[in-house]
């Protein structure tokens, strides 16, 4: 079989914060799609697991000039910096090769069966996108979630205690889309054929998902918007999740506002 050159994808996400209403559907859709576990006390944020986490920020101005903005935060799927320098922070510290950056999709994987639960990656992640399973999630020992294991999806492995989990850009949906394409005798996916559960669920359509390497994809066009930024850009983690906000204070809080960093992120910079 021929080797496909130059067809490597780089999946990424653009979240329009002007459209985001902070409703939290992305979080619920993510949890339902990915068999994320629930605990009786979800308000204990050090123990609660949310691959997609909604943050609330405000402009800090007193009443009545207060403004609120919401930040949906999936895994940023950090990349290499392209200069042979550093790697995704979590991948470079994993001692068990349980997480790796797939050069063919740009997705940072997390293999539960491989993870030894040292939580080094959790400490390394600047976005707090990684979560540790302190207990078994769904199991026969959990009477409080009785019956709820019936809605578990077979496409995602339920996690056992002692492993790290995080957003996978709904990798199983990529597999689902590919399998469908193969059945239709196609090898390449159309735009939007593979989108994450949060993208699909967002009622305000604030999330766009696609291949950053494909100039025709909407994501590639959106990241050229002058209001596009990434979180903690100065760390040079090269996230594949972009945000758009027309509000300066929001962009400022994302740490993209150091004097020499006021510039739109262009496709070349990725």
């Amino acid at each position: 079989m021929e080797k496909r050159e130059g067809h490597d994808n780089k999946y990424g996400m653009v979240i329009d914060l002007d459209k985001c209403t902070g409703c939290g559907t992305c979080m619920v859709a993510c949890a339902a799609e990915n068999n994320v576990t629930v605990r009786a006390d979800e308000s204990d944020k050090e123990r609660s697991i949310a691959w997609m986490q909604l943050y609330k920020i405000d402009n800090g101005r007193p009443f009545p000039d207060t403004e609120v903005c919401y930040f949906p935060r999936p895994c940023m799927h950090c990349d290499e910096d392209g200069r042979g320098g550093h790697h995704s922070p979590c991948v470079s510290v994993c001692v068990a090769t349980a997480t790796e950056l797939d050069p063919h999709t740009g997705i940072v994987s997390q293999i539960y069966a491989r993870c030894i639960g040292c939580r080094y990656c959790q400490a390394a992640c600047p976005y707090h996108a990684r979560y540790f399973n302190w207990w078994d999630g769904y199991s026969s020992f959990k009477p409080f979630s009785k019956g709820m294991e019936r809605s578990l999806s077979p496409e995602v492995s339920p996690r056992m205690r002692g492993v790290i989990e995080k957003c996978t850009f709904c990798h199983h949906r990529l597999m689902r889309a590919k399998t469908k394409a193969y059945a239709e005798n196609r090898r390449d996916l159309r735009e939007y054929e593979y989108i994450t559960a949060c993208t699909e669920a967002c009622p305000a359509r604030a999330i766009t998902f696609g291949d950053l390497n494909n100039p025709d994809h909407m994501v590639s066009r959106l990241i050229k918007n002058k209001n596009t930024f990434r979180l903690l850009e100065k760390l040079n983690t090269q996230p594949k999740v972009y945000y758009i906000s027309s509000k300066e204070w929001v962009r400022k809080l994302a740490d993209n506002y150091l004097p020499d960093q006021i510039k739109p992120v262009s496709g070349n910079d990725i």
Binding site: M27, V28, A29, V38, G147, S151, E200, A201, C202, P203
Partner: peptide
């Protein structure tokens, strides 16, 4: 009514079906 999206409650509806302890 909702071309595509759903509110979080509608999205979490299966837990109102399968949660044995509230039924």
């Amino acid at each position: 009514v909702n071309p595509g999206g759903l509110c979080p409650l509608g999205m979490g509806g299966l837990q109102l079906l399968y949660n044995e302890n509230i039924r």
